[in-house]
Amino acid sequence: MNNDILSIAKKTIELESNAIANLTNLIDSNFENAIKCILKSKGRVIITGIGKSATIATKIVATLNSTGTPAIFMHAADAIHGDLGIIQNNDVVICISKSGNTPEIKVLIPLIKRNNNPIIAITGNKDSFLGTQATYTLNTFVEKEACPNNLAPTTSTTAQLVMGDAIAVTLLELNQFTSKDFAKYHPGGALGKKLYLRVSDLVENNEAPKVNIDTSVKNALLEISNKRLGATAVLDNNKLAGIITDGDIRRMLNKSDDFLSLTSLDIMSKNPKKIDINAMAIEAMDVMETNNISQLIVVDKQDNYKGIVHIHDLIKEGIF
């Protein structure tokens, strides 16, 4: 039975991957002209479909919006019952349908054409009503659905989704959409935070534990415990001299029975890893991962001590 399960899964993936690979053979001047049409448009991209194609349409809308191309979903059935008003004069309409011959599509297309909106078809049948009536037709033909009965939309919807991604990425590159633009559209998500969150945003709510080089180990331990960052900076005449971490304390206890006579200078780690307060938070993550550490000393441009950023700060923000 296990072999059957794996065999079915592998066959499904193989069928769909072959169909996607074949899309490169179906891309032609229609795709190029469709992209130029969207770039030239002063309106939005309205994407419509019915059934599983409607579900794919909503995902393509989300991808376009997140990459700088304003898009709106319009269900094909609802469009002919009042939602057609979504489409404005300068909008481009993308219509998705495997067969291109569903009743709703046949009613909808003439209504859109009456308002002279360009129509981009994504269909598996370029000779269908949709394929022949559209301004530009993007062929997503697949030989067979992954469904053994060749009924459930599987391979065909995957092909539609990939064609939508090809549209979105092409527009993204031609519009020179940058990582800063991406962050602007994703301010609340982990992806956006990686692109805009700075170390200063993380340390502003943290205390800045610090002791002097002549501070007793006992008081250094109290500072670490009270500030709850697992470490403290060690200063010499207000200049950074080192760092004491929980690990340093444990190593000291293993080596010395008379730790009460020791000072911070005796157990600190010199030349600690540092990061500029204006650096990106993701840079702090990279330094921690590379050096297998949990804390980073934060300094300003003049190398003045500003605090400590902890790995938990990054985890809390969803970056690590």
Rank of each mutant, 00 (worst) to 15 (best):
M1I: 14
L6R: 15
E16Q: 15
E16A: 11
L26E: 05
L26G: 00
L26T: 02
S29G: 01
E32I: 15
E32M: 03
I35A: 09
C37K: 13
C37Q: 12
S41H: 07
G43M: 03
G43V: 09
K52V: 04
T55Y: 14
A57H: 06
K59R: 14
A62M: 07
L64I: 08
T67C: 11
P70W: 00
A77F: 03
A79E: 07
L84R: 02
N90G: 04
V92S: 09
C95A: 15
T102A: 13
L111H: 07
I112F: 05
K113R: 13
T132S: 13
Q133E: 14
C147I: 05
P148Q: 03
T157C: 01
T158S: 14
V162D: 06
A166T: 12
A166F: 00
A168N: 03
T170H: 02
L172G: 10
N175E: 05
D181A: 08
A183W: 03
Y185D: 05
H186S: 02
L197D: 01
L197F: 10
L202Q: 02
N206L: 00
N206R: 06
P209N: 07
T215I: 01
N219W: 01
A233P: 12
V234W: 00
K239F: 01
L240C: 04
I243H: 08
R250Y: 07
N254F: 08
S256T: 09
D258H: 07
L260S: 09
T263I: 05
M268S: 05
S269W: 01
K273R: 10
I277G: 04
I277P: 01
N278Y: 09
E283P: 03
A284M: 12
M288S: 08
N292M: 08
I293L: 03
S294R: 15
L296A: 02
Q302F: 05
Q302M: 01
N304K: 15
G307P: 03
I308P: 14
H310W: 11
L314R: 03
F320P: 00
